[in-house]
Write a protein that binds this DNA or RNA. Structure first.
Lengths: 344, 344
DNA sequence: CTTGACATCCAAAACGTTTTGGGCTAGAAT
DNA sequence: ATTCTAGCCCAAAACGTTTTGGATGTCAAG
């Protein structure tokens, strides 16, 4: 049984009130008394009961994070990095993080509702925003504090941090063009994810700006997983006329695509140039290392967490919406386009 | 403001007690009243205040999980899979998961102490156990419920689930031997991690059983990361007399080692056979796919969580210590040993 | 008519903390 | 001698729920 306030009070023949106020450092406790309280509290290993304190303060000092797990087994380095950022920043500011995992859908909204209405958490962090995002709708309508990693199509007035996919994709396309590529394919992520559609739109625009046509045969869809990337790349490689470069919606799929290429004894960066998006940890350790559009996941995670805590502590955000410019990281998975047979 | 019990009571002109008992399904409230209560509770979107309930019940329905993050940025698929398992199983049994991230060390023990003494969680899940594990010592001495993924050298009487590293390593060595390898190196993980020393001991024994000598030049150390694996493999490749096969303490390092081999234009599975340990998601997507010793991380995570919840609900564990036999998954990173120059 | 038995409801206590609104004493000022 | 002020302390209320231990009313059995 951990020691409680009343145990300390009994030990020192003081009231619970005085012990509480001594520990909180109020000035209406004599220095001697305070010293005695501090000493025995330490000796008894006293740690306040978090639940009781929460009930009284009407504040949990906990932020919620619901991981949208796609499928039961999922291992996405994106999320470990995210979690490390959220966890470290929260710990630094003495907040705890309450987690649940649930697949997108109605059950997900229920979990959000439960977190909010049961007052288990003071605020939420949202990731992988959707174009029409029920989670954001729910929280806006309940005026519940949250910050998201990513924007949404249907709502605009809420705090978020995001990467400028447009700029990133444009840099990638420009880079491919400068390498001589004109036949560029694109591997899209799920349509309902906001970042997926933004990146796709960026691709369409960047191609147009370079006066390149988009060949519908070279557009593929994947589920953001390595397996999905591999499947899509195999479809591409089965084509009789292939593109010379493939832009991929995220790194994990790009890595899967690389595997598919190599399994046919083709060379990534030569027979097919591949560019990913994210720069997750493993990206620099593939062979060849993956050229990718880097978004600072860990930094964004700390940033989002920090913003949420600021909101909770009634500070106003000087910049509630932050659009970060990503950086194209040139590595080995891209190379010059193969010479085109001269048709003249 | 979410609706509270007293709001429902006021609405229906009932006492808070009756409303509470109606919702809890006690038989001393009339069916009509109960129906009315249920209806308005639903209409008002009532969700019980978790904090108040916890205080009264002296039970949080929360399990704690402290992620031992090594370094600020870390992305280990091992942990995402672990988290998915813990999260999904906890959600299934209506428990929440409270998370913190902290690097191993004294601050880590403080975090455990805080979780325990503040009664924020009912029990803890421990992973990456150490030979002499301060976390386990702390919880045993406070009789705090926990279940761990992994054993410990200094304590034996606590509930855990673990993979039989011994059996796994032996299978791997036997497999290499059957392929003709006699010169086998080993890349160890950190010495303080229990699974690391168990696997190393297993290697020593398995080599002896096959009458093979261990060449100290072929023993390396790494930090379980891809970068660590790459560095170690580079040391190996710099050697004038190299082993023909390398057994690696975990998949992430094995993947790093593969990259190092490929960067020298050598072929994994031919010039150097590599075997990992874990079978994390990406392992089957490398090129060549990684031969590895599979431990079912997701399953173990659900199992550990389930056991903890059983403990918390006063059920006795029929099998408090589970040693799972891993499976050697043969893929492309291993191949026959190169022919040895005949010295006779 | 009384007594039980049953059905239905509720006031009050409890969980452990913080906050509110004083109370008491000693010494200084009037 | 009285009032005021500081300094120190504490009882009680409050947070929202569940549990405890009745209270009240009705109806059937005696």
């Amino acid at each position: 049984m951990p020691a409680r306030l009343k145990d300390i009070a009994a030990e020192l023949d003081l009231s619970v009130t005085t012990v509480s106020r001594a520990l909180a450092g109020y000035s209406d406790v004599s220095p001697q008394t305070r010293a005695r309280v501090l000493a025995t509290a330490k000796a008894m290993g006293y740690v306040p009961d978090a639940t009781a304190r929460r009930l009284q303060k009407q504040r949990a000092n906990v932020i919620g994070f619901i991981v949208p797990t796609f499928g039961p087994r999922f291992s996405d380095p994106f999320f470990s990095e995210l979690l490390a950022g959220i966890g470290n920043e929260a710990a630094r500011r003495s907040y705890d993080v309450l987690i649940s995992t649930v697949a997108p859908g109605p059950a997900e909204t229920d979990t959000y509702r439960r977190f909010i209405m049961s007052r288990s958490v003071d605020g939420m962090i949202v990731v992988r925003t959707r174009s029409d995002d029920a989670r954001i709708a729910l929280m806006l309508e309940n005026e519940f504090p949250f910050v998201s990693f990513g924007r949404s199509a249907n709502y605009s007035d809420f705090p978020w941090v995001d990467t400028d996919g447009m700029a990133g994709i444009r840099a990638a396309v420009d880079h491919l063009v400068s390498l001589g590529h004109r036949n560029i394919g694109y591997l899209r992520g799920p349509q309902e994810l906001m970042f997926s559609v933004l990146r796709w739109q960026a691709f369409v625009r960047a191609m147009a700006e370079n006066n390149l046509e988009i060949n519908p045969e070279w557009i593929f869809h994947g589920d953001l997983s390595q397996g999905g990337g591999r499947t899509a790349a195999n479809q591409l490689l089965d084509l009789s006329n292939r593109p010379s470069a493939l832009l991929v919606g995220n790194d994990l799929m790009a890595m899967g695509a690389m595997t598919a290429v190599q399994q046919r004894n083709l060379v990534v960066g030569q027979d097919l140039s591949i560019i990913g998006f994210d720069d997750i940890g493993p990206a620099e350790h593939t062979h060849p290392p993956l050229t990718t559009i880097r978004q600072p996941i860990y930094y964004i995670a700390t940033q989002v967490t920090s913003m949420l805590i600021q909101l909770l502590e009634d500070e106003t955000l000087q910049q509630p919406q932050q659009l970060l410019t990503p950086e194209l990281v040139l590595r080995g998975s891209t190379g010059p386009a193969p010479a085109i047979p001269d048709l003249t």
